[in-house]
Design a protein around this nucleic acid. Structure first.
Lengths: 205, 205
DNA sequence: GTCTATAGAGCGATAGAC
DNA sequence: GTCTATCGCTCTATAGAC
């Protein structure tokens, strides 16, 4: 259904659909080039519109990225909720599954914590992005609490460990560091989940 | 002694010293802007030479970065050797200290595994960079072996976990994600070391 | 709402003077 | 070995036509 907006082969979007198409295609571009390599001009080229067209819908590059980041946070929250539910009743399994789901989701969609909490989007003080970011953190803190970390600052430290681990897998995979033993994106997610499980086990004792 | 080459306040380097000064200053620039934000023009500006001058010493941007990356790998190897020695006889402590030293070193120097094994430097097939990268991996595999992981492919997986964790701390710290509880760079290194210890503990059982 | 055209900036890299 | 000057490219963003 996203194809109805953006087109599988990047057909030019129907009139009035450019705003939505820009957001859809932004994820693909982020996934390929990362945040630093993201450009509005490239985005316009892919959608076969002029470089001026995007600026009818977003004040500037940052405003577009803020909308994308907010949507990324919402998506991520839903994906992790689902993964936690599917992982069964053990709260440690649920947390580990969340970390694995993070890796899978970000390697797929290209926008993770680095985009959602990006330094360069902070000055915007975008209300929707702030809301989405808080929603994500709330879910994570809740999962950590259920895993027995009732002290919030302890829970935060555990989450920090867990998501530094998961994010490291994404970053070093993108940098081709994991090429040694890498077979598929799914493979990386599996290894990240295993690592998360070990990390949680080590914190329990 | 590096100041003798680059100058504390970025004085223009003495004639014949530009090549060395370019390498020194590259670390500072990488540390501030990261690999994507690194530019030869900016480097020249900081050293108060023309934008053409660096190209007398390096064929292009990538050739310069390859030399920097090779030196970064050598430095990192030495730093980690030292940290492992200082950590005492327990091989698990030694590995954890290595991860912490990685975080400390990279947050200081700006060039970690992402630079050393960067995708964009791979096509160069630079012999010195390859040597330095192998040296780094050899040290790490050796430390993993001493920690009881005699199967090389098992050892590789453990190292992968450990350095994805450490690198995640660097990346998310750079993205300002750790701002919540962050006090100093040293603080981040300490937390990374704690996380590494937990991860190793979880792998032991 | 989209286009063409353009201003203005930064970068990589080269030519030729000194 | 360093300079000035310049080319060609990409990017962000705006003005004005349609």
């Amino acid at each position: 259904m996203t194809e109805a907006v953006a087109g599988a082969g990047n057909e030019r979007p129907a009139r009035g659909q450019l705003r939505a198409a820009l957001i859809v295609e932004s994820f693909a571009l982020l996934s390929e080039k990362g945040m630093a390599g993201f450009s509005v001009a490239e985005l316009a080229r892919r959608l076969k519109v002029s470089t001026a067209a995007p600026y009818r819908h977003f004040r500037n590059r940052e405003a577009l990225l803020a909308v994308v980041a907010a949507q990324a946070a919402d998506e991520l929250t839903r994906t992790m909720e689902t993964a936690a539910s599917a992982a069964g009743p053990d709260p440690v399994d649920r947390l580990a599954a969340t970390a694995g789901a993070y890796v899978r989701h970000v390697s797929d969609r290209g926008a993770g914590l680095d985009v959602i909490f990006a330094r360069e989007l902070r000055p915007l003080r975008d209300a929707d992005l702030a809301r989405a970011g808080r929603g994500l953190m709330t879910l994570l803190l809740d999962l950590a609490r259920q895993a027995g970390h009732r002290d919030p600052s302890r829970a935060l430290l555990l989450l920090e460990q867990l998501f530094c681990l998961a994010h490291g897998y994404i970053t070093l995979d993108a940098a081709d560091f994991l090429t040694f033993s890498r077979h598929s994106p799914e493979d990386v997610a599996t290894r990240a989940t295993d690592a998360a499980t070990a990390l949680l086990r080590g914190n329990a004792t």
